[in-house]
Design a protein around this nucleic acid. Sequence first.
DNA 1: ATCAGGGTAGTGAACGATCACTTTCTTGTC
DNA 2: GACAAGAAAGTGATCGTTCACTACCCTGAT
Lengths: 330, 330
Amino acid sequence: MPTAGKRATIVEVARLAGVSHQTVSRYLRFEGGLKPDTMERVETAIRQLDYRPNLVARSMRTRRTGRLAIVIPAMAFSPARMLAGASAAAAESGYMIEVVSVGGIQERTERLLELADSGQVEGILSLAPVLPSSERRAAEGVAVVVSTDFDDSMRSIGELADGAPVAELMTRLAEWGHRRFYHVAGAPEFASARGRRQTYADTIERLGLDNVGVFDGDWSGESGVEAIRRLSPDNLPTAVIAANDVVAAGVIRGASERGLDVPGDLSVTGWDNQTIGQFIQPSLTTVDIDLEGLGRRGMCRLVAAVRGEAAPSWAAAMTSVIWRESTAAP
Amino acid sequence: MPTAGKRATIVEVARLAGVSHQTVSRYLRFEGGLKPDTMERVETAIRQLDYRPNLVARSMRTRRTGRLAIVIPAMAFSPARMLAGASAAAAESGYMIEVVSVGGIQERTERLLELADSGQVEGILSLAPVLPSSERRAAEGVAVVVSTDFDDSMRSIGELADGAPVAELMTRLAEWGHRRFYHVAGAPEFASARGRRQTYADTIERLGLDNVGVFDGDWSGESGVEAIRRLSPDNLPTAVIAANDVVAAGVIRGASERGLDVPGDLSVTGWDNQTIGQFIQPSLTTVDIDLEGLGRRGMCRLVAAVRGEAAPSWAAAMTSVIWRESTAAP
DNA sequence: ATCAGGGTAGTGAACGATCACTTTCTTGTC
DNA sequence: GACAAGAAAGTGATCGTTCACTACCCTGAT
């Protein structure tokens, strides 16, 4: 039985099977062209010694590590689910994942470059914005895919930056009779926040609605409360598009501070479809994002890049609006 | 200047510096005992060639990979923040982190064993429960630390399993005059859920309170709603200890379905201090957990285990109760 | 001048796999 | 039976480090 202390090597397997180490290597890499008889002998030897290839040695020779890295932002909540998707996709493609979580964009970019240089990974998927300078390195053999945002040179557009659901929300609300809109934006360094803000402005224009204003928020609940406090009483909106669910909750709280009923006086929409939003009162109209799917997409893009294949394309939408109690006709 | 195509090796550095490769190796490993003159020559050569040690080759020889793995549950929300803490701690100790995210406990355990066997990592930190059978492998050279839960043989007690704040919540509520308590528990495979439940029962006993019942929930908001629906009208509690914030939100919704006011008729407490809980109405009394700190602790335990040092111990509490609007005197 | 002994540096062999060749075995055809 | 050609298996080098020795160099005491 397997000696617990030390792993068997390919040579020992070969000796036991009465073949050369190269034959075992061939067997391991499914090269085919082995006689059934030999194959079986190797197989038994492997099982008998509980042999597993030493991946370090293998990757030393092949110069491929079979490992990718994911860079996630330190605080946002989305990454957990995106990570899950990305991680699963990587595993399916036979890669291991390394996760690096870093706070500031500056630090993050540095860490990313360091990682790219280390030769430890074949590709890097960043779920958080990085400085455009990092692209320089992409040529040097390590693929880099930045997923959540588009980098400032507009090379690739991240799916999260898609503000389209804002238009969907506003269109429906306008159909219900809403005319006076207000937007509480997220932190502007996020392309997703910029995208939503842009779509908001475009939709106001396109549908000929009244823009009560855009509040420069920072994704926080406080910014939602504050946004409502700031409103002058003679210029109140009937609908608020909040940057995310937490902000929306802040908006609702701010509204009740001022004696405004949601959705009676004010319709409020969030973004992210946080679990809890379904249970609070009023339950939150929100935009559901397929975060696992996004993570998976990003990872598939990366794997394709690493393997030099064409980037896959998807048709399916990754977002859908969920209508709940926080929105109604004005 | 560095040829972008290929990394320089230690031998090339040695040639350029006019020394042997071994001398360069010594320099790299801070062995000391080099003449200042030699040292400088090596240094310049390294800089000139933009040399970096090939970590794969190194770990092949040393048989140490400098890498740890973290296993996280597929869905829970806590891991993101715990991961951040753990990841930072690992980086500080000079380790890289591999993340594996798996759903079921069965699959997770399998994946963990596979990982332990692969020789790719020196240690594994699991932030999710695994089957006790995985312990078998710990002896084989790969350290395994399970953090969120304690394993069923009670070897190590995870910090999240600490139900003490339940006692704190109940004691205060009792001081305010609450007598009739109700508990909506989390999924029983989590030691944290079992811990809270146990502490609930103990505290009922200790303070001589009325236990209206314990509802077998599953961490979901629905289970909170359902828990309240199930209550018979002539046996209503005045305080509900919910397993987490989402459950608490469900409980509040269920209460309002039955015309019960929170906190007027019913005090409700959550757990996790989700950001949004501060803004919903009523804002949620909850237990704040230092998840980053927990992740960090787990990782430090793992690093200590890998290095064969004694496990570090901490004194500081990792949880604190935050009192908000959802609780009041009955 | 010799020798001991510490401080420096060099040499060649691992580590465990794959790669590029070479060799041996089969098979089919004339 | 001889031969060619393809299939199957073997041989030795190689990837870039570190490890375990060995060799050299200097200094100071005998």
